[in-house]
Simulated assay, not measured.
Amino acid sequence: MRKPTDICLLCQVNPATKTKSHIYPKFISTNFLGNKGTGRRGYDLSSDKILEDKPRVIQDSPKEDYILCDECEAYFSVLEGISSDTFINWRNKVDNGDYTLKHVIDQLDVVECNTADKATIYLLIYSIFWRVSISSISLFKNVKLASDFEEELRTTLMTYKNEKKNDYLNALNSKPNFKIFPTAITTANSFADETANMLFAPFSYDPYCLVVDRFGFMLFRTSHEIKHIIKNFTNTTINDCKIMIFSEQLWFDTFLKRPFELLAKQALEQKKKI
């Protein structure tokens, strides 16, 4: 159990006095819980071996105490504030021509986020996987980055650490290039029931994978690890920001079907014991 006198895991200088740090950005990780004031409720699923552990009921996305200092928490808030527009408003931006939607095959389109702050979105994704890796929350016990990779993400993030948006943007402008680890982002073109999604952190390695409510994220150490089927739709350079848009059925089949099947099996087995 970490204490407020422990050192911040990001800057490794200041005391980690911040409480209730969100591991996932709140703006992409709470819709599945339902609207505020409606008895928000969900489950976290920490691995493919769901039957071994009873899913934990949650009413907010995962938070942890004493992993960050106030400065580093503010820095992550800057990254989230800049990036949120892309994730929340991509449909509107396609409609107004800021982003380009390309049809690939049946049930798969790709959005080119032309006007997005692409470097910041890379750093945001790095921060999500780094936070998951350093977290002691049970949801993330099966997603641990290789130690050298975790450190590379940390030092990259620290290059641009600033508590204020303008200072951060000035730092990024003065040093616009950093090491790119390929990423893939997925979502669905619609959700009939937005509370039917989940937070799912399966065991994964090259790529590391996370399902965060309406978005799926993959992080690769090198482009050589990318399977051919998605190679053209991943982000591999500083100028890339693509989002794969699945049909609602493909999203369910790819990300939700297996966890739901295991949850249903668990419910039946528990019922038999009553």
Rank of each mutant, 00 (worst) to 15 (best):
T5H: 10
S21W: 07
Y24Q: 11
Y24F: 15
K26P: 12
F32E: 07
F32G: 04
L33V: 08
G37L: 11
R41H: 12
E52N: 04
Q59Y: 09
S61M: 03
K63F: 06
Y66E: 03
E71N: 15
V78Q: 10
V78F: 05
E80N: 08
S83P: 13
W90Q: 13
K93M: 10
D98P: 00
V104M: 08
L108A: 01
D109M: 02
K118L: 13
Y122I: 03
L123H: 06
V132P: 01
I137D: 11
N142P: 00
D148L: 02
E152P: 03
L153N: 05
L153Q: 10
E163I: 07
Y168T: 02
A171I: 01
S174D: 15
N177D: 10
F178T: 08
F178D: 13
P182R: 05
S190D: 06
F191W: 08
V211P: 04
T222K: 11
T222R: 03
I226F: 08
I229K: 12
T234H: 01
N239L: 11
C241Y: 09
I243H: 14
F246C: 00
Q249G: 05
D253Q: 11
K257T: 03
P259S: 09
K265D: 03
K265A: 02
K273R: 14
K273Q: 15
